[in-house]
Write a protein that binds this DNA or RNA. Structure first.
Lengths: 331, 331
DNA sequence: TGTGTTACCGATACCGGTATCGATACCAAG
DNA sequence: CTTGGTATCGATACCGGTATCGGTAACACA
């Protein structure tokens, strides 16, 4: 068993051909005789030859790497996006490299700089609200930049996602149309989760248009979680008893809200609304309203854009892919 | 604004020094005069020099990449592991590359082969049950292999995780000690999720020792989810009404079970037990039992091993890091 | 037999960095 | 003035592949 990494040169030596011929044979190039090809393949097999993508990429000036930056892994949303990206990249020979920014723009900048030094073929970043310096760096990279999740802002290049402002608006409209009037809001870390803030702002715009407003709200400062949603809901309900609807920053928080209601065994009719359309939300013993965000799909589309935009015969694809979240759970 | 990627050579030219001196200056090597260093740094700044990790790695024969293979991203467990890895790698200059195997050994092998061709400095894979061919490939890579999550089996090199067999045993012991006697089981895809299967086997061992057995079970064949847990629980309860405890393959399924109980508004005392200690489980309006698995910590330790084991002065670290999950939720 | 063509293969020059060794200049000591 | 040491820098050879071009042999055809 060979435990050191064998090189193309060694494979060539064993096969009794030149490095160049071995390279061609392994890549399935046309001008190699069947006999030679087999010799090389056998040699490679025998030496457990793996190839060296570093050398390949450096030499051929293309990297087969797609950089991905997401803000968090602590709820299921971004993992699902990553799964979508992984699916979209499958079979293409591309590899995803990822980084987590923890909703921190400085960290995000550092991660992006790091990523770019790997010379990826494309980079997928979350949101449109990068500071100027980061934007400059991304533009400078001269590779396709794909900003995902959010549409509210000015994209650098490609943009796949949905308008969170509009999602908030439409949820508010739907809830008002369903007869709700006394609204509360529960969210957290809106200074960092800008998309949640945009949803809230959109929601409030519609409230104002209808001469309504949140009559009570609770804001946490840690990242959203089921427990936090439950805790804040308990707080809000014990302080101000007369809501008929609570809008949450997302489904995790809303699920916590549902748990609070169940625990308190309240029988008054409060409709809770979240965002994302998590699998969890649909299974709750209490119906909650939510906007279904196509997370996997966004990842898949982003991956296809990453692949497609560098194909030589790249058809002129749309720079912006907009999804409209479907609202469910309002009777 | 320079939009093409600038090279070290160009930086050197602008600074009026040789490539080598520029390289030294940028890396902060000692034998460069302050004046020269500043000239080079300014030139790099002006050209937006980024560096090229491919060339660096190829030249220096080390890659600063850590490959990570996980089976799934569809529940929060593995994302949390990844977050832990990301945290553990932070500041080290290492980058994580990841792949999702979808609980498919063939896919896993292909992903690992792909990863290895990037010549990572270490590789982190999930579980101990890789087929021989994959094991051979991993051994052959001559880099630290870190197998995570599971301890029940023969590790290739490093091993960080917990014994799922024992976790099942201890949960069973605790439940029996708490007076439970009539057990049901609900799980899914046990042919692929081998760790869940090991927990079930451990649980059953203790049941048998106590002259007990599952008196009813339901197995799904899709991946576990809250909805599936709820569905199977409804099924099980309507068919066989007399359980006092149901063991689930994990917390997602158990949460679904809790929802089923709440929906059916059953007042009989059925204790549901899961595995993982998810944040969700603690927030449920119904107390469920669970074993807390240190997912983030496993990721962090794995990352530290990846870093530590290649340090030149690597202290002889333990090859196996065993965690013992804490059981909560049993009154 | 001479001449193209085609099929196959190898030599060489890169890709963008780093390791290594040697060169130069400058200064202090003898 | 010579010698030696130190600080600073550059030339060169890699790392492991691929692109490119040129060479050789075999075959078809005139």
């Amino acid at each position: 068993m060979h435990t050191h990494k064998s090189t193309l040169e060694e494979v060539a030596a064993v096969a009794g051909v030149s490095k160049m011929t071995a390279s061609r044979a392994l890549r399935g190039a046309p001008d190699v005789s069947i006999k030679t090809r087999d010799k090389v393949l056998q040699a490679a097999e025998r030496l457990n030859y793996l190839g060296n993508r570093l050398a390949l990429s450096l030499s051929s000036q293309r990297t087969d790497l797609v950089a991905v930056v997401v803000p968090s892994m602590s709820n299921i949303v971004f993992p699902e996006v990553l799964a979508g990206i992984s699916t979209g990249l499958e079979g293409s020979g591309m590899q995803a490299v990822f980084g987590i920014s923890d909703y921190d723009v400085t960290k995000e900048r550092n991660i992006i700089r790091d990523m770019l030094s790997w010379r990826p073929s494309a980079i997928i970043v979350t949101g449109l609200d990068q500071p100027d310096e980061t934007v400059r760096m991304l533009k400078n990279a001269a590779i396709p930049v794909i900003q995902i999740m959010d549409l509210d802002g000015t994209p650098i290049d490609f943009n796949v996602g949905l308008s969170h402002g509009k999602a908030g608006e439409e949820m508010a409209s739907a809830l008002i149309a369903a007869g709700r009037k006394r609204f509360g809001y529960i969210g957290s870390a809106l200074d960092r989760d800008l998309r949640a803030a945009k949803r809230k702002a959109g929601f409030e715009r519609v409230l104002h248009e209808n001469h309504l407003a949140f009559i009570g709200q609770r804001l946490g400062d840690t990242l959203s979680s089921v427990g936090l949603g439950k805790y804040l809901t308990h707080q809000l309900l014990s302080a101000e008893p007369s809501f008929d609807c609570i809008y949450y920053s997302n489904d995790d928080m809303a699920a916590g809200g549902a748990f609070a209601i169940i625990e308190a065994s309240r029988t008054d009719d409060i409709l809770m609304a979240g965002f994302n359309g998590l699998e969890l939300a649909a299974a709750l013993p209490l119906r909650i309203a939510t906007s279904r965000s196509p997370r996997r799909m966004i990842g898949e589309v982003a991956a296809r854009l990453a692949l497609g935009s560098m194909a030589p015969d790249a058809p002129s694809v749309s720079k912006i892919t907009a999804f409209v979240p479907e609202i469910t759970g309002i009777v």
